[in-house]
């Protein structure tokens, strides 16, 4: 299996996302540090999907591009969307109870980061990490 869909509707789904991403990261032969970074980033994003998006789903994919392999994880919700993307990506800014490191921190931990959001239309965040 090179692709897995995971619904995110409850607390334990965040743990499930971490476990699936970990196993994909191992298959893509990411180093232990890179595995840990990717799993941590996706843990932040899965929790955002649950907390701010009101639930949604994750898609985890194994990528092959020439000799390098990677893992891409995409988090989608139909929540309220993010009105100010620059603000949401600022360290320490939070609209909720968190520390405001979720989005900005996750972005630092991955190789590619894409944020697609519109107020009232939901949010999709996609992150990718490649083997070195």
């Amino acid at each position: 299996m090179t692709r897995e869909d995971i619904p995110i509707v409850a607390d334990e789904d965040v743990v499930r996302v971490r476990q699936v991403v970990r196993s994909y990261a191992q298959r893509a032969k990411l180093s232990l540090v890179d595995q840990t970074k990717l799993v941590t980033a996706t843990s932040e994003l899965a929790r955002n999907t649950l907390t701010y998006g009101g639930g949604g789903s994750a898609v985890v994919e194994l990528l092959g591009e020439g000799r390098r392999q990677g893992v891409r994880a995409s988090f989608r919700d139909d929540g309220p969307g993010i009105p100010d993307i620059t603000l949401a990506l600022t360290d320490g800014w939070t609209s909720g109870q968190g520390m405001g490191l979720g989005l900005s921190g996750a972005r630092r931990l991955v190789d590619e980061f894409d944020l697609d959001t519109a107020v009232g239309r939901g949010t999709t965040v996609t992150v990718t990490k490649w083997s070195r």
Binding site: V33, Q35, T36, K37, T40, L101, S104, G105, R108, L109
Partner: peptide, 14 residues
Amino acid sequence: MRPAVAITLVELGL
């Protein structure tokens, strides 16, 4: 704390 966890925490900014 595992080394990979420590490195990740620093990069996360925590």
